[in-house]
Design a protein around this nucleic acid. Structure first.
Lengths: 153, 153
DNA sequence: TTAATATGTATTGCGCACAATCTAATTGCG
DNA sequence: CGCAATTAGATTGTGCGCAATACATATTAA
């Protein structure tokens, strides 16, 4: 009879895997965000892009990608949809014709006001204190950064 | 001059958002998993399905969906690809013709052995102790379950 | 200045994710 | 029993996410 590696099997159990915890929580967040973002006419990844632009716009696509860990294959069509919705404007940089600079339109700026109520709704849904969430966030970000560090090697 | 709600703007900052921490960590995990799962011929969601089947197979699609928080729109094509790869077999239940039961093929069972080394590689990449990861996992799962509870209302 | 290389974005193809809709099978209720 | 309501999967359409590739611009080296 073949001896099975019990420890390895425990590690393969779905409920023991932090990756699945993260994966399924990301989906849960997405589902909670959906009705809130529908009112803004945004998807969740589009919302993330808008968050970066509300902090600073007139930036090249690459900067947004670096901020969100996304590449041009994802961002180019997403940004075109935001442009079609008249939330942003895409213009080639005159300094470096390779770059496309992303600027908010007045409609894009205006959406910032409507978005201010979103975090409060999410906080309520999470049923946590701000302190608890921020502590968890720091732990998760630390994990993410270690994972990304391995990728960079 | 219009007074801006400073607290709300802080809440909208990307780096303060736990949802983005979770979202970006899920992507980081996916990227770390990719080379490992490529060797098994699986994508990450396919790997999750196989994890559930290695625990128990011969189950209807709905059960897998309940386990992974995925619906038939996602699972049906994914399962067809696993079937095309000869890892699973899909058969209509004779008891309830509405159900499609998912069973592992011998090749699907055999893949279990090759998969046993995966968690160790992920653990190494995360650069954490098992204890730290399990503690984080429990916190994240608790958050996920609270988010899902709100959705169920 | 030209040739080689690097960089920024766009495109294509594949595989999720999910809403909405559809079909078929089952259950429940009068 | 008979029909409405429910349930399980499948299908369609939209939008990521990423690998691979293409292409134009920019930089560097010879």
């Amino acid at each position: 009879m073949v001896r099975k590696p019990v420890a390895a099997d425990q590690a393969l159990r779905l409920d023991n895997q932090i990756c699945f915890a993260v994966y399924s929580t990301a989906h849960a967040f997405n589902r909670v965000y959906k009705p809130l973002l529908d009112r803004l006419g945004l998807t969740y990844p589009q919302y993330l892009v808008m968050l970066t632009l509300w902090e600073r716009d007139g930036v090249p696509v690459k900067d947004i990608g670096a901020r969100l860990f996304l590449d041009s294959g994802t961002l180019t069509p997403l940004l075109k949809r935001l442009e079609a919705a008249d939330l942003i404007k895409r213009t080639r940089s005159s300094e470096d014709e390779r770059q496309v600079l992303i600027a908010l339109t007045s409609k894009g700026h205006a959406l910032h006001d409507k978005a201010r109520s979103v975090p409060q709704s999410i906080l309520a849904a999470s049923d946590c204190t701000v302190g608890e969430l921020l502590a968890m966030k720091d732990e998760i970000v630390a994990l993410r950064d270690r994972l990304n560090a391995v990728l960079g090697e």
